[in-house]
Design a protein around this nucleic acid. Structure first.
Lengths: 209, 209
DNA sequence: GTGTACCGATACGGTCGAGTACCGGTACAC
DNA sequence: GTGTACCGGTACTCGACCGTATCGGTACAC
């Protein structure tokens, strides 16, 4: 559980247990996530990561016990909420900006999600790390956005479409590659928000036209 | 390309090149798709398939050159349009029935799609077979359904939400496991159609209430 | 200088699975 | 009966990759 990078109480400021700097560690993480995106989880090898980062397999295994634990650590370290800062004061505009933001990283994260596909059901810890790193934070940010809109009275509380907004946003993002072989971009998502999400929430000025 | 099962002109009616009956072949296909659903594409082995169907590896390799070609053949053979027969005369009702139907096989097919995740980008032929078998037929059926609705005047032609209907139906189906760890069922999808799809298409009687 | 603790490199053991080769058995044609 | 062509079983080769062990080099503490 608390395997690495935990700030232990007896460590002095200028001394590290591992000689790997945090930046170096991040290089490993970036490398493994990149390779997963390109070749899939199963095709990624510890040897390949070591080679591409010019470290040695021993170094990797000294820090992390196994491959899934290593990948899980990489996922946790890459945790970032993509549209956390969006708060324009209008739900409509928030959703539009969220679509733009999502379109920008959809290529990277959707691919990661896709490539980890089966590993989700395979390794418990990995699945949890993935959800914690990529899924929950975004869902939570989106839900806060919606709640603010409800609080401002833009959408009635308990509106039936509310609970489906996260699912459809991420759903559309995620199936696009399967449907037409290309990742959803910002324009596509923006169009989706205009044509579906806003109308479903009753947020359009001219509902018919 | 034209590797097997092509009806060659010189074959007589009552004679088969392979002694495997079509039923036997289908057993192989069912077995491999089942195993993929349970353990993922990479974890499925030709040896495992041979064992579980009580045939021999040689038999499999006599019919199909490689593992991905075998899986692709299985996908093509399992091609079936799930909601082809839906045509109630009302788009609203068609979509409701489609949701029910989709909920019923979502467990099986979504799982298959998920488990094949990476193989999509890995093997060209496999990706094509998957799209041909599971994706395109359903999309086409859904689009015909929509076109009938447009022809009947239930939805104006060129309605902006039209093009997103397939993506959101399959998208919601597909992300549900990632979001909450369980597959979407018929009830969930039915609720989605009521709360989002119909309103977005302007098909609700009481838009506000 | 000496000890310690980590890094990088390499080599190794062990497992697993794809695909091949070979063998005996058998159904069917003639 | 004889030939042919396929089936099932098994043994095998070959490569990939996980994870371990070992060794030399080096930065740093004291």
């Amino acid at each position: 559980m608390t395997s690495q990078a935990a700030d232990e109480p007896e460590t002095v400021v200028a001394s590290r247990r591992s000689k790997l700097t945090p930046e170096r560690e991040q290089e490993f993480f970036d490398a493994v996530l990149d390779q997963i995106r390109h070749c899939g989880y199963e095709s990624v090898t510890m040897e390949g990561i070591a080679a591409s980062t010019r470290c040695s397999k021993s170094t990797l295994y000294r820090q992390w016990k196994t491959k899934p634990q290593f990948v899980a650590a990489a996922l946790r370290a890459s945790r970032r909420v993509r549209f956390a800062g969006i708060d324009t004061g209008s739900l409509t505009e928030d959703l539009r900006q969220a679509a733009r933001a999502a379109g920008d990283w959809s290529g990277k994260d959707t691919r990661l999600l896709q490539s980890l596909g089966h590993a989700l059901t395979d390794d418990r810890e990995l699945a949890e790390a993935l959800r914690e790193a990529l899924v929950h934070p975004e869902i939570a940010a989106l839900q806060e956005m919606l709640e603010r809109g409800v609080a401002r009275g833009e959408v009635p509380a308990g509106h039936p479409a509310l609970e489906y907004v996260p699912a459809m946003m991420f759903g559309v993002l995620r199936v696009r590659p399967v449907l037409c072989g290309q990742y959803a971009d910002a324009d596509y998502l923006a169009g989706f928000v205009e044509a579906v999400v806003l109308p479903a929430l009753g947020l359009t000025r001219n509902p018919a036209e």
